[in-house]
Computed example of a mutant assay.
Amino acid sequence: MKKTFEVSDKLFELYHRVHRLVNESMTEEGVSLARSKFLFFLSKLGPCRSTDIACALNFAPRTVTEAIDGLERDRLVMRKPDPEDRRAKIVSITETGRAVLQAAEHPRKQLIEEIFSALDDEQLDQLYDIVSKLVEKTDDIRKRKEEAEAAEIAVAR
């Protein structure tokens, strides 16, 4: 069991170190990793409501609103009235936002390549398989928890 926690701790350590390095390199190009998530989402899916962004990225609506305020202030996104709901706004990425996102993407990819160059092709394949198994297991656990919660709600009714 001790080895399980040691490996887990190493994975978290790796994640945090890579996250920090990637964030620093992207920020030098004009957009942080966190902000790039919003821009990437908008560039792939197109204009949408902030509630759609919050749901897709699993963020609180207030967090999304604050992030969009900052992105809009920097002219990376724009808001327009939603033609179907006058209370809502449609958020879209601007050309400036696309340019900033593209500029930040290159150093991110370069850094990831450099980090993973420590592994040969066989090791990369093994790591991919191992991480995929762990992702699948976490999905199974999440599904089981959601089913248990749904069952508890059904019993309470």
Rank of each mutant, 00 (worst) to 15 (best):
E84L: 06
H16W: 14
E29D: 04
I130A: 04
D82Q: 00
D129R: 01
V18M: 08
S32C: 08
R35W: 11
S36Y: 01
V22W: 00
D129K: 03
V131S: 12
I130R: 00
L45I: 05
M78K: 04
P61L: 06
F5L: 15
T94C: 00
V135M: 11
P83W: 01
M1P: 02
D140K: 07
M1Y: 04
P47E: 05
I141W: 09
R142L: 15
L101S: 04
G70A: 06
S25E: 14
V22K: 01
N23K: 02
R86I: 15
R17P: 13
Q102G: 09
V22C: 06
A103C: 05
C55V: 11
H16K: 13
D9R: 11
T96Q: 10
R20H: 15
L76E: 01
V155N: 04
T96Y: 09
G97S: 06
I141E: 07
R35P: 04
A154S: 13
A88H: 03
E114N: 11
E24P: 04
L14V: 10
I112C: 04
R62L: 10
K109T: 09
T51V: 15
P61Q: 03
V7F: 11
E13A: 06
D139Y: 09
R142W: 11
E6A: 14
I115V: 12
A34H: 10
I90M: 00
A60R: 11
T63S: 13
V155Q: 06
A56T: 06
M26R: 00
P83I: 02
L42T: 02
P47M: 02
R144H: 07
I93M: 06
K89M: 11
A148V: 12
K3Y: 11
V135K: 09
G30L: 09
L111H: 10
T27S: 09
R87W: 04
K143E: 12
R144F: 08
L21Y: 10
S25R: 03
V7Q: 13
T63P: 12
